[in-house]
Design a protein around this nucleic acid. Structure first.
Lengths: 176, 176
DNA sequence: GTTGCATATTCAAAAAATTGAATATAAGCT
DNA sequence: AGCTTATATTCAATTTTTTGAATATGCAAC
């Protein structure tokens, strides 16, 4: 159960609303943590009820109001305590790979189409990560230091997206 | 819920016991599907109760007896039906990356130690995958054809493990 | 003027995964 | 004889995730 720690870590770097978090999860850590909006909103409520987060209502014009969450000192302690314990093993579920694994039973055309789509999605994501990476490179101190480790994680995202893209190309060639 | 389809796909390639499957998941598809032994055994029972699998008791000497599961024609149909539908999105949980993301709050020594351990684990896994890949390359027809697509998935595993290893080295250098 | 999109959040039933305990055979080691 | 490791499987309570439905504001396009 480290969704809570992922949320605490992200809000510690920069506070924000549930909606912001959903986007940040999707746009910058999706290669190492997948979370739905329902999961995130639920966990935010729970974290606030445990006083690990506190929120402030922000009235907006032109948009619905929002709640900005911020990590409390207790939240920081909780995160630090978690950081001392060894990390649990990775868990992954990638249905596309099962399809390819069992591809002998599938229609080759459909397979090609799906791999192409995934390739496009990975290309988009790679570009997104690269843009984000450039933003981080161009930051000035002390922000640059603050984002050093998040940036380091992003570099893994880039490498993994590159691996996917290469592989998708080779696979499309191989099955055509 | 495609654990069932992962199991059907693997047993379609080669029948085996729950114990065999646990090892196969761990040794060859762990970079795209994580499953615990409890999950696998439970799902095998369910699949058999739905007549998508059938089992045969095998009495062994020197070892406990085992149940060998095999996919039924209904199981093949179910798998084919699933293959026609677009694959769901990948889900991933990698707690180590959260730790690195929040690493400013952590002890650098502990962080280095953990990254080193993960690096070693990825190196072992890479070697495992490479050995498996060589086995598959050296197969003779028709087995080679049969394993063409599983082999293709393995190649992604190799690329991803390589990306991890590279990244772990760079990260260790960067934070030391 | 209504359809669709982006913003913003909440609730709850159902399904799936995790955690932890249990059981059993037999080989190898000290 | 007792300990560990590998093989082999089952059950159940608890926790987490998924799926699906709701609600609300305001902009832009048709």
């Amino acid at each position: 159960m480290s969704l809570r720690h992922a949320i605490l870590a992200m809000l510690d770097i920069e506070k924000g609303s549930g909606y912001d978090l959903v986007k940040r999860f999707d746009q910058s850590v999706s290669y190492f943590w997948a979370a739905s909006y329902q999961q995130i909103y639920r966990e935010l409520q729970k974290l606030e009820s445990e006083a690990l987060l506190e929120s402030e209502e922000v009235i907006q014009q032109g948009k619905p109001d929002k709640k900005i969450y911020e990590v409390t000192p207790d939240g920081i302690s909780e995160l630090q305590k978690w950081l001392e314990k060894p990390a649990k093993a990775m868990k992954i579920k990638e249905p596309l790979l099962i399809k390819i694994y069992a591809g002998e039973l599938a229609d080759t055309g459909l397979l090609i189409e799906e791999i192409s789509q995934h390739k496009a999605a990975h290309a988009t994501r790679l570009q997104q990560y690269q843009e984000m990476s450039e933003l981080l490179i161009n930051l000035e101190q002390p922000l640059r230091s603050k984002y050093f480790l998040p940036h380091q994680t992003l570099k893994l995202g880039i490498k993994i997206e590159e691996a996917w893209l290469e592989w998708a190309e080779e696979t499309l060639e191989a099955i055509t």
